Computed example of a mutant assay.
Amino acid sequence: MRAPAKPSVCRAEEGYAAAFGGRRTFYLKPDQLLAIKAARDSDPVVAKAYAALIERADVALKRKPGSVMDKTTIPLSGDRHDYLSIAPYWWPDPANPSGPYIRRDGEVNPKRDTRSYDRTAIGRMSSDAETLSLAYYYSGERKYADKAAQVIRTWFLDPATAMNPNATFAQAVPGRENGRAEGVLDTSAFQPVIDAVGLIGPSGALSDAENKALEAWFGRYIDWMLKSPTGREEQAAKNNHGMWFDAQLTHYALFARRPEIARKTVEDFPRRRIAVQFDPSGSLPAELTRTRSFHYSIYALEPAYDVAEIAACLDLDLWNYADDKGRGLRKATDFLSAYRGQPAAWRYKEMRWPAGELDALLTRADWAWGPGRYPRSGEGTLALFYRTDTR
């Protein structure tokens, strides 16, 4: 697998640093961000998005950095530094309110996003780090870099507030499980943080020692992912969870300067994920059984795209890979793109049609396979302003 030439080149664990003034990013590409920055004042659509970005960043400037110490529930370990959340689709049983929770697929229990747990805090940390770093890059104002560094330092490095590098108690189900393999998905919130660290690099807001400490933290988290029973179970998942595991592992491995782990995961991806989870038609059968089947089909392709981005950093090409039955990212993208603007044609269950999610996916597809391959709305091209989602 050889990756096609690109305007800016990601070079293994150094990312785009050489082509991006020392900014060690892995997803955010110099040519794309430079083009947006150049259009900041002249293009009305870009100007509007930039104003919204700065508005969000100014709110984040005033916000106290979140940490795992903010939750009101103590994990079973007794250590508040351990991350804790509850599974999104599990609810109290009306027939037995004090008994084990029951599953309601696609319906999120609002208790998940309360101060009882860490789910809200990890999402806000990720969003604030991303927003502030982008605001620094596009505006050049040092205050945004300093605040981004504070947000990152509080979550990962400060001994008083830092998260322990594990997700043992993530996505617990009261009355059933103290933590689940699916909880590893929660830490995909760290992916935008890594590129945020790269964007603020030239500011010096994080010292060299702090950058090394962050790499070490992610190295310990990689070890937990690969060696713990929870991590190994999630790695074995044969739906979107397995692909999100690979997306995190490859990204974190390059950041932690352990490229051999990223390379093995990428090389195994066709056999381990595409051959197992992709249908020759382009569908992802495991996602079609969900109450939000179109959403989850997109949601499964997003991490596959992430792995393809990291593969390119290793001079490997997953974007154009197809097996002898035609299974690959391009076929799966074509399958979903055919339903753009045609929700009535989708014959599987879908509670809320995710038009915006499809547009964002096709924006990335257009970057991967060439301009004009996947028509989408103009504002979709501004996805570079934000990568954070609500996983």
Score class of each variant (00 low, 15 high):
314 L>W: 04
255 F>Y: 07
65 P>S: 01
380 G>S: 07
206 L>P: 07
256 A>P: 04
222 I>A: 04
35 A>W: 09
308 A>P: 02
376 R>N: 13
247 A>C: 09
11 R>S: 13
223 D>W: 10
209 A>C: 04
133 S>P: 08
233 E>F: 13
149 A>I: 03
218 F>Q: 06
379 E>D: 12
29 K>T: 15
350 E>F: 06
219 G>I: 04
245 F>K: 05
113 D>Y: 15
334 D>T: 02
265 T>Q: 12
344 A>R: 14
363 T>V: 14
81 H>I: 08
375 P>H: 13
127 S>F: 13
296 Y>G: 08
346 W>Y: 06
60 A>E: 11
384 L>M: 14
45 V>P: 11
358 L>G: 02
244 W>F: 03
40 R>H: 10
344 A>E: 14
36 I>F: 11
280 P>Y: 05
111 K>Q: 11
2 R>K: 14
389 D>G: 14
237 A>Q: 11
351 M>T: 12
11 R>K: 15
308 A>I: 02
127 S>P: 10
136 Y>L: 06
16 Y>N: 02
67 S>V: 09
114 T>G: 09
190 F>V: 05
107 E>L: 14
331 K>P: 07
231 G>A: 10
151 V>K: 00
259 P>C: 11
367 W>A: 13
177 E>W: 12
346 W>T: 04
341 G>I: 03
231 G>Y: 01
317 D>I: 01
278 F>R: 06
318 L>V: 02
380 G>P: 07
261 I>P: 09
291 T>Q: 07
109 N>E: 01
59 V>R: 14
46 V>M: 03
12 A>V: 08
363 T>G: 13
340 R>Y: 13
275 A>F: 08
8 S>E: 04
260 E>Q: 11
340 R>W: 13
253 A>S: 13
109 N>M: 04
96 N>V: 11
168 T>I: 04
220 R>G: 01
74 I>L: 15
167 A>Y: 11
126 S>R: 04
155 W>R: 00
370 G>C: 10
167 A>W: 08
185 L>Y: 03
134 L>S: 05
300 A>W: 08
141 E>W: 09
326 G>K: 03
217 W>P: 06
81 H>R: 15
216 A>H: 12
197 V>F: 02
85 S>E: 05
358 L>E: 00
229 P>L: 10
216 A>L: 12
66 G>Q: 12
284 L>R: 05
107 E>K: 12
103 R>D: 04
31 D>H: 09
105 D>R: 08
312 A>L: 08
